[in-house]
């Protein structure tokens, strides 16, 4: 087993200060580990992988890992990722975002990235809250949950990320959790290798800003909650009473070319036409 941790150590930047900036029990480090393992499993070279992160806790992941890393502005990770992918389609571009990044301020970019199917993997670390700014509700905060900006309980509904990105046209949509790590590894590897735009939502608890205010006694309690309430989509669909249960797994698999590929094909067709005419 030692190879798991040692492998990750090989992918960390040795000139960065550790431990990670995240709070004790934050799942972000687990997602980072999962990301590294899936990239490693796919045999991708460090030089060919670009991590484009947004702002917030999730945005800090990029600095620790020895890929090409870009820490962008809040919500705009997908736009920069789109530019990189169009400029150099050979690169594996992974946009790492939080729920605020991806679904609130960057919601427009998300649906358009899905619609145009740019060949970028969106890894969304959903912790149901704005963590870095100190615990304000986000567009994934469940109805009824508490935060500093909904001290009486959230009145708004949360986004259904799967249905949102499915409707927008994404090539792949999946959800995993930081408790179900092996599955998360597999989901991520699948998403990175499928052409077009692929979204992986990773449920990762934020005890400091979300758990404490919503009845969890510790970070461990939140992991136990993930363990007990999440089950594979196949089993979820067979349930009669789905109250409090959450499906994980792959929800959408579409066979489409990434925009960068369609662009390249169009250029080729143009060149052929030109060559043929001459």
């Amino acid at each position: 087993m030692a190879e798991i941790t040692q492998l990750i150590h090989q992918y960390l930047r040795h000139n960065k200060k550790f431990p990670l900036v995240f709070c004790p029990g934050c799942g972000h480090g687990i997602v980072l580990g999962s990301l590294v393992r899936s990239v490693h499993a796919l045999g991708l070279a460090k030089d060919d992988v670009v991590i484009v992160a947004g702002i917030g806790c999730s945005g800090r992941i990029a600095a620790y890992v020895d890929f090409n890393t870009v820490h962008t502005t809040h919500g705009r990770a997908l736009t920069v990722a789109t530019g990189i992918k169009m400029a150099n389609p050979k690169l594996t571009v992974i946009a790492v975002m939080g729920d605020g990044d991806a679904f609130s301020i960057g919601g427009n970019h998300l649906i358009h990235a899905a619609r145009r199917n740019i060949g970028v993997t969106a890894l969304v670390l959903n912790n149901f809250i704005y963590g870095m700014t100190g615990g304000q509700c986000s567009s994934t905060t469940p109805e009824g949950a508490y935060s500093h900006t909904c001290p009486q309980g959230q009145l708004e509904s949360a986004f259904d990320i799967v249905e949102l990105t499915r409707a927008a046209g994404a090539a792949g949509v999946s959800r995993g959790t930081v408790y179900h790590v092996k599955e998360l590894d597999a989901l991520m590897a699948e998403a990175i290798s499928r052409p077009g735009f692929n979204l992986v939502e990773a449920l990762t608890p934020c005890f400091t800003q979300y758990g404490r205010g919503n009845g969890f006694k510790s970070a461990v309690e939140m992991f136990k909650w993930l363990k007990s309430s999440c089950l594979s989509v196949e089993r979820y669909e067979k349930l009669e009473d789905r109250t409090g249960k959450l499906p994980i797994g792959t929800f959408v698999r579409r066979d489409v070319d990434g925009l960068e590929t369609r662009w390249a094909n169009m250029r080729q067709a143009l060149a052929a036409k030109k060559g043929g005419a001459a």
């Binding site: 870009v70 502005t73 736009t79 789109t82 530019g83 169009m86 925009l259 143009l270």
Partner: peptide, 28 residues
């Protein structure tokens, strides 16, 4: 489309346009 290595993309808004331009510039 006719320029060697040329790439063009219409983005969803001006914020995204600048983001894509920054990304492309970082990619050389």
């Amino acid at each position: 489309p006719h320029v060697p290595d040329g790439a063009f993309i219409q983005m969803e808004d001006e914020i995204a346009s600048m983001g894509a331009v920054i990304g492309a510039s970082l990619a050389g």
